[in-house]
Amino acid sequence: MSGREERERAVELYFSTPMSTKQVVEHLGYPTRQCLERWLHADPRYADVVAKPPVPLGTRRRAVELCLSGMQQKQAAAELGAGTGAAHHWMRLYRAGGMAALGTGTSEKVIRRIMREDGLVTRVPGRRRYSSYEGEAASRAGQPRRPGFHRRTTQREVAHGHHAGSRPGTARSAFPR
């Protein structure tokens, strides 16, 4: 089979069955999921297709029930046609909040909009910035600033002629007094 025929077969299988891209790839053994999605985006029929819906609530609840009855999450996911990661996520949600936690989630954006409409305000603490700076040296020690203070020249600088004024246009111009 040529590359074009394989591509057409994979795209046709996706449109003719209720399979997801992952399931089509597993069924055919080729291409990768990302490659199939690129092929689908290039197909003119894909513009009319709405994204496949998320896993229904009943399937999520059934997966949790199977796991609670002793079945492994991987087996429950395979039996229901869902991903292993999804089954693991549903179990985590169940453990955190029971069956009600499996319902459709509400985004933070929607919650904030509803709160704003009802006039509710949450306290969001300000960001605490770290700084090792503790203020001006003069204010800490209670001593006046010394405006004529300059870094002292080390013995090494004097010995090697690297101190201010040893060569024209060096440190003296860079560090005016």
Rank of each mutant, 00 (worst) to 15 (best):
P44A: 11
L93P: 01
L102Q: 02
A82D: 03
E108H: 12
E8A: 10
E65P: 05
M115I: 05
R145G: 04
E65G: 09
Y46N: 08
E26T: 04
R92A: 12
V25G: 00
L40W: 10
P44F: 10
H89L: 13
V49C: 14
G70R: 03
L68K: 06
T84W: 06
E12L: 15
H41Y: 14
Y94A: 01
A141F: 02
C67H: 04
E108G: 08
F15G: 14
R140E: 01
A96T: 05
G97Y: 00
L28D: 00
G81S: 07
E65D: 15
R112Y: 06
D43V: 09
V121G: 11
T122I: 07
G70K: 03
G142S: 02
Q143S: 03
K52R: 14
A82M: 15
A100H: 04
V55Q: 06
H88E: 13
E5L: 14
W90L: 02
R62M: 12
P53D: 13
G81M: 09
R7N: 04
M99P: 01
E134F: 13
Y46I: 08
M115G: 08
L102Y: 00
C67P: 01
A87Q: 01
R128T: 14
P56V: 11
G58C: 13
G3K: 06
G103C: 08
R112L: 12
K74G: 10
E108T: 13
K74M: 11
G142N: 00
A101G: 05
E37D: 12
V121A: 13
W39Y: 08
G70N: 08
R127M: 10
W39C: 07
Y30D: 00
L102S: 01
V124K: 08
P144W: 00
D43T: 09
A47R: 15
R7G: 04
A77E: 01
V64S: 02
K22R: 12
E6C: 11
S69P: 06
R33P: 00
Y133K: 06
G81Q: 10
G29A: 05
A82K: 03
H27D: 07
R61A: 05
V24N: 00
A101H: 00
L40S: 13
